[in-house]
Structure formats: structure tokens, C-alpha cells
């Protein structure tokens, strides 16, 4: 599972970096199609990690993200943490949902296992 999550984080980072709002669901679709099972869980965990990683990279470059998030939230009477939490939660829902749906579809399309008749 750890390997799956690591792969999912990588896919999410690339997809979210270049796909904008569509990045997380695209990553979810890809992971759902590629992973043999547990894609939904892996994507749900990986997407916020990726989003957080991208924001963290910006913060490491000196961007005052938390201070700005507080000002942004202040415009709408929200708590200071709300924008940051929303920024990482949404990709989780998008990616996890997409991966889970594709995973389930794969399962449904897979022919039912045919049992070997027992010798009489």
C-alpha cells in the first residue's frame, strides 16, 4: 500500500502542478485505471499530500502562505486555517472519488470468476 501511495503522490504532484483544478481528478482517473486495487484510498491520501507539498514548496521559497490565508479568510469571516484546509481537502475528494469510481467500474467490468466444477 505504501508503494501505491508513493506512486499516487507522484502522479498527483505532476497532475496538480500542470492540470490546475482538473489535476486531482485526472490523477484519480489515472490511478484508478492503473492500480490493481485500493486506488480510491491511495488517491484520497495522496492528493492532499501533493497539494500540501506544492504549497509547502511555495512557502519554502518565501511565500507567506499562512499569513495570506488568514487575510483571505478574513475577507469572508472564516477562520484563518480554512483556506489551507480547503486547498488540501478538495483534491482529496476529487482524486479519491475519481479513483474510487474507476476502480469500481473496473471491478464491475471484470468477468465473474468461474468456479471449476467439482468432480463427481
Amino acid at each position: 500500500m505504501l508503494l501505491k501511495i508513493l506512486l499516487s503522490v507522484l502522479v498527483n504532484i505532476v497532475a496538480q502542478k500542470f492540470g490546475g483544478v482538473w489535476g486531482a481528478p485526472i490523477a484519480g482517473l489515472l490511478l484508478g485505471a492503473l492500480l490493481p486495487g485500493g486506488a480510491g484510498t491511495a488517491a484520497t491520501v495522496a492528493a492532499p499530500v501533493a497539494a500540501g507539498g506544492l504549497l509547502g514548496a511555495a512557502a519554502l521559497n518565501g511565500a507567506p502562505l499562512t499569513e495570506f490565508a488568514a487575510r483571505l479568510a478574513g475577507n469572508f469571516g472564516l477562520p484563518a486555517w480554512a483556506p489551507m484546509v480547503a486547498a488540501v481537502t478538495l483534491p482529496a475528494l476529487q482524486a479519491g472519488g475519481a479513483a474510487g469510481a474507476v476502480g469500481a467500474l473496473k471491478g464491475l467490468l471484470k468477468p465473474p470468476a468461474v468456479g471449476v466444477p467439482a468432480p463427481k
Partner: peptide, 15 residues
């Protein structure tokens, strides 16, 4: 089917 539908609604809805 139910899990897939829920996931689809979550993914598509949130997107």
C-alpha cells in the same frame, strides 16, 4: 456498484 456510484458522485460533485 454502490461504492462506485458514491465515489463517482464524490469525485464528479467535488470537481
Amino acid at each position: 456498484l454502490v461504492t462506485g456510484a458514491l465515489a463517482l458522485v464524490t469525485g464528479a460533485g467535488s470537481t
